[in-house]
Nucleic acid binder design. Structure first.
Lengths: 132, 132
DNA sequence: TGAGTGTATCATATCACTTAATACACTTGC
DNA sequence: GCAAGTGTATTAAGTGATATGATACACTCA
């Protein structure tokens, strides 16, 4: 969980998962939360690779996935930019939220929990977070 | 997502995840849901391996994890049995539910969703499941 | 033209996972 | 005692995903 910076972005990388997956996930989150704005240029592959102390190929892998997500647009010779369409970002965010929620419910039901149990557990978690 | 049977148990195995993880997860669920009862003997490593068309080492790996979970007890020369303590099973179930819920919330918040959003998405998912 | 973009292609290395073949220690029933 | 059935350990081999390093290519812009 070492902290590494690239411009305004802060990354936390470890060896528990593929590096490109961690970069991808944290870029997605930064875009979804608006920490990087539509139209912004993100650090070049080589810049990012140096900042994260990672191979350029690994960064490129992550960037290509972002393009496939529709979150970025790459222009040869210029760089990779956040999409100028906020709607696309919001659509991605909504789709992802539904996917994550579905998976959560699927897993809970697989272990025999019903809707009431799920709601109770969420309420409990929220109460715990209030105390802190 | 091929279906394979071992006694009363039904397994769904694919190549998207480690086989031993899938066996482990589905055994945990079967125990948590009471599809196998406390004290029951589960199929021998070799039986299970043959039924699932998988290497005995792979099954053994999963069984050892179940022991570590406290869900099973292994007696050399006899076999592997579901723990006779229902409390242990329930405790495992509760712990797992909290872990899964925490992870769900962490992920949603990482993408900028708050408690209201989470509750709304859950309600939506529940409504969808009612229609079906 | 040169510096900076993303991309492609090798080769290499590592690691987790799976399989296979054997062997060993233990328990039970004949 | 013995044979059959338990879980377990060991060794070897193969596979696939991941990561690195080195290099080259196509493109854009000042």
């Amino acid at each position: 969980m070492e902290e590494r910076r690239a411009g305004a972005l802060v990354f936390h990388l470890d060896l528990s998962q593929p590096l490109y997956e961690q970069i991808l996930q944290q870029m997605r989150q930064a875009i979804a939360k608006g920490e990087i704005r539509p139209g912004d240029k993100i650090p070049s592959v080589r810049e990012m690779a140096q900042a994260l102390r990672v191979n350029p190929n690994t960064v490129s892998h992550a960037y290509q996935e972002l393009d496939r997500d529709g979150l970025t647009e790459t222009r040869r010779g210029q760089g990779t930019f956040i999409t100028t369409s906020p709607e696309r970002i919001e659509r991605f965010r909504q789709t992802l939220a539904r996917r994550v929620t579905q998976e959560f419910i699927r897993q809970m039901q697989a272990f025999g929990f019903g809707w009431d149990d799920i709601r109770a557990l969420l309420r409990e978690a929220q109460d715990d977070s209030r105390e802190t």
